[in-house]
């Protein structure tokens, strides 16, 4: 589990690890252009950091902290969107 975060009024954000601005949540700079983002089976997953809600706590989750475990990541369109 990721470490617990201080939560202020700014909406916490994350992003790919290695791009600029991933530590500074509220910067208005556009995301760094990734060199042709490509997911390929058999290749490393891009690392990222993201704020998360888990069991009553706000935590920060970094994909690379889960090395040694099987990980499932599920993206979905939005909370309260039925399916």
């Amino acid at each position: 589990m990721g470490e617990e975060m201080e939560v202020g009024c700014a909406r916490p954000t994350g992003g790919p690890v290695g791009s600029s601005g991933d530590e500074k949540a509220e910067t208005a700079t556009p995301p760094v252009k990734e060199a042709a983002p490509m997911i390929q089976v058999g290749k490393k997953a891009p690392d990222f950091v993201a704020p998360a809600y888990q069991q009553g706590k706000f935590v920060s989750v970094k994909l690379s902290e889960y090395l040694g475990k099987w990980v499932l990541i599920c993206f979905y369109p939005g909370d309260f969107t039925f399916v």
């Binding site: 997911i39 390929q40 089976v41 058999g42 290749k43 490393k44 997953a45 690392d47 994909l63 690379s64 889960y66 090395l67 040694g68 475990k69 099987w70 990980v71 499932l72 990541i73 599920c74």
Partner: peptide
């Protein structure tokens, strides 16, 4: 995405 213990998709 299914990612293995080495971080490989």
């Amino acid at each position: 995405f299914i990612i293995d213990p080495e971080g490989v998709v």
